[in-house]
């Protein structure tokens, strides 16, 4: 590819476009690279989608890959539901996610506000303990969490799957940080007007932490919907499986028909894509402003 040196006369126009403006060739190169990476990232998903739409008579093992199904059919989505109760599994995952979202939104908001805005004896110790849990990877305590859940009589139940994560320690700390960033003068003004704690939390705190709350909702949903290890340990009855455990069950137990597994993975994958697609603007807005820190 040859780069054309722009004649000096175009200099002002170039300057008007701003510092370091790329040439059309550079831009084209950038798009070419972007599309290449896109194929690498999205390709496997599309291949799986394509497999899930191929009929029973179409050979899925051909050496020359056939990306477009000859006769696209949704039949595999029906067949997978006959093999495993896939819609019950989806509902189970949804129930777990709903419990976790509710618990985290309510529990972490209340605790985050108390830790950020109210002065009380022992606050420092409590905060320190919340922080200390962060060095514990979840897998380290998973065995004794199972023993605990079993002791509570919740082994092999969705409640047992949902309960431990219903208030996540990290989210408490995130909400505390969000509330601490709200100007304290707002609170003081409300206090002068005679507002009590609940009113200050509801009318001054909450409207200012909506961004953090939506991030917590999105990631709690994704975390609960995608989780595998914990439900795999807690659940034994195949009727109670969540989607991820059910998919592995389908993969491991039934002589694998790639079309059915593909249909199953799409049922687990597409809701996440839709949720993230709707919410992504919250997410990347923060990134753009340099607000997200590792």
């Amino acid at each position: 590819m040859t780069t054309v040196r722009e004649p000096a006369t175009t200099r002002p126009a170039n300057a008007a476009r701003g510092f370091n403006t790329p040439s059309p060739t550079q831009t084209a190169g950038r798009y070419l690279l972007l599309v290449l990476v896109l194929l690498l990232v999205i390709g496997p998903f599309l291949w799986q989608l394509s497999t899930s739409l191929k009929g029973a008579t179409e050979d899925v093992y051909t050496r020359t890959p056939n990306f477009l199904p000859d006769q696209p059919t949704l039949g595999n989505y029906g067949t997978v539901a006959d093999t495993i109760p896939v819609w019950t599994y989806a509902l189970n995952s949804l129930i777990v996610a709903a419990v976790c979202i509710t618990g985290n939104v309510v529990g972490c908001t209340l605790a985050g506000y108390a830790l950020a805005r109210l002065r009380f004896r022992g606050a420092k110790l409590v905060l320190g303990l919340f922080l200390a849990t962060l060095v514990l990877p979840g897998e380290v305590t998973i065995v004794s969490q199972y023993v605990l859940v079993r002791g509570l009589g919740l082994a092999d139940s969705l409640a047992g799957v949902a309960l431990p994560g219903a208030i996540a320690m990290l989210n408490v700390l995130l909400m505390r940080t969000a509330f601490a960033a709200v100007p304290v003068e707002l609170d003081q003004a409300a206090l002068v007007d005679g507002a009590n704690v609940w009113q200050r939390l509801w009318h001054i705190g909450l409207p200012n932490v909506r961004g953090m709350l939506s991030v917590i909702v999105i990631f709690t949903f994704i975390g609960a919907w995608d989780d595998f290890l914990w439900p795999l340990i807690v659940l034994t009855d195949p009727q109670k499986y969540t989607l991820t455990v059910g998919l592995q069950y389908l993969n491991g137990t039934f002589s694998a028909n790639p079309r059915l597994i593909a249909a199953g993975t799409m049922i687990a994958f597409l809701p996440i894509v839709v949720v993230f697609g709707i919410c992504q603007r919250f997410f990347f807005k923060g990134v753009e402003e340099g607000a997200v820190k590792g």
């Binding site: 972007l34 999205i42 687990a268 994958f269 990347f284």
Partner: peptide, 22 residues
């Protein structure tokens, strides 16, 4: 493009492993 490149992150490891297994 940014959203698309992030897609594998939000997918469950189970989903991703089943796709790659195939």
């Amino acid at each position: 493009f940014r959203t698309a490149f992030y897609t594998p992150v939000i997918a469950s490891a189970v989903v991703v492993a089943l796709i790659w297994g195939w």
